[in-house]
Design a protein around this nucleic acid. Structure first.
Lengths: 238, 238
DNA sequence: AATAATCAGTGTCTGGCGGACACAGTTTTT
DNA sequence: AAAAACTGTGTCCGCCAGACACTGATTATT
């Protein structure tokens, strides 16, 4: 049971036994994670290499391996650091709907601030304490709603999936610069060339264009999900 | 406008002008994509390298660059190939709800069959014709529902986000082998050690465990989403 | 105070990756 | 027959993650 996974667990969940002898460390896990986050925020997760991170810290790349067993674990720490503390605690006076809505919007801003979280959170991995705190928060909002444990879990998965999906398409559309224009133009060309094969898509795009797109995708899905949950909850509590 | 993006567009959308002189190609775009898919299905997207693909085809890696400008484009072709043809056309006798439900379940099986699609479809990229056909199909199901074009698009994004989210957690839980057991055991250990910090999570897990988890997450979210959409649609059509 | 143990950071090396480029061999056009 | 066009190969580069042996700094033990 002392495999590489438990290394990641110890790194994320502690304890961090500090050495008694030898020179004092010039770095810290937190500083390393911050450096990685800085690079990932600016240039994406692919730009995060041991060399880059080490260079940013004025150190050789091999020095990082004194703090982190490998790149995967570094990314894991980056994720849990970037996710940050959970949102302010649920106020009991608000109902589950307001709480979950606020939670999802808050999570959405996190994904917007650190788009590389999308890349870093695909695939099996060890979850960190702050990430788990997010899930705890959402689950707590669903207390006393009559939902079973499995249903509460499924509801949270549903919400996070939506937030992720929105972040995904937000990145595909591009923030503002050239990639957006190019990709959008490319799609426009495609539709002009092959539009007859996709009539419903053509119609939807035209309709969306004339009504002035204002990116309500997050709110739209959120309202649908919360409405659907509401139906189930009233059905359970009556 | 003859950048590298248009290369990918030409590759995915044609036309494919075939040369008149020179030796006949030993490979084809399709065979290369199939080889890549085979590797990705078996060992994940990370195992797909030019060398591996070329080796599987009995060829040097540089030969692949005669068919594909780079690895990103190869992955794009793999994606559009693996997604496969759209599901059988919508039967007009079924209502939007049945159509969208079937569509989402069908899409879910695709993600289950090719888990690496999750990795391959993060980040800005050129969309392929088959992928667009999937979107077309879902949009067509929402014709005559009173929803605006933007709303129809948002609804499809919501559905795909959910299917992706389910595929994501399905992979995190592991198919059957050791990673599942290890990760689940790890989570169990964490909960045992830090459970008091996550009371709602502890309660939900306990409740889910005793009711016998049977992985209804896909259906749960699907029903909530369709219920929520149903509310909006009846509101619009009345 | 001297020695031994421990630990931080470095330098060097390996194998694998994507990809640029020049080249040889094959096929078709002129 | 010659030239043009095209396919697949061999070689090279820079970057990557990581293994390993090492130097030098710091502290506990004697």
């Amino acid at each position: 049971m002392s495999d590489e996974q438990s290394e990641a667990v110890r790194l994320l969940w502690g304890p961090h036994p500090k050495p008694k002898r030898g020179p004092k460390p010039a770095l810290s896990l937190n500083r390393i994670a911050q450096a990685g986050i800085e690079i990932a925020d600016a240039e994406g997760l692919a730009a995060v290499s041991m060399q880059r991170v080490a260079g940013l810290l004025g150190v050789t790349k091999m020095a990082l391996y004194r703090y982190v067993p490998g790149k995967a674990e570094l990314v894991a720490v980056m994720v849990d650091t970037a996710i940050g503390g959970a949102p302010p605690p649920n106020e009991p006076r608000r109902d589950w709907r307001e709480q979950l809505g606020g939670w999802a919007r808050h999570l959405s801003t996190v994904f917007h601030r650190h788009p590389w979280l999308l890349d870093a959170t695909v695939g099996p991995r060890v979850i960190g304490p702050k990430e788990l705190a997010w899930m705890e928060q959402a689950l707590a909002a669903l207390d006393n709603t009559g939902l079973t444990g499995a249903e509460r879990m499924d509801a949270v998965v549903l919400l996070t999936g939506h937030v992720r999906g929105i972040a995904l398409q937000a990145r595909a559309a591009g923030p503002e610069g050239s990639p957006e224009a190019q990709l959008a133009a490319t799609l426009g060309e495609l539709m002009r060339a092959h539009g007859e094969r996709y009539p419903a898509l053509t119609a939807a795009l035209a309709s969306a264009a004339e009504s002035g797109g204002q990116d309500e995708a997050l709110e739209f899905g959120l309202h649908r999900i919360l409405d659907g949950l509401g139906l189930l909850i009233t059905q359970r509590t009556n």
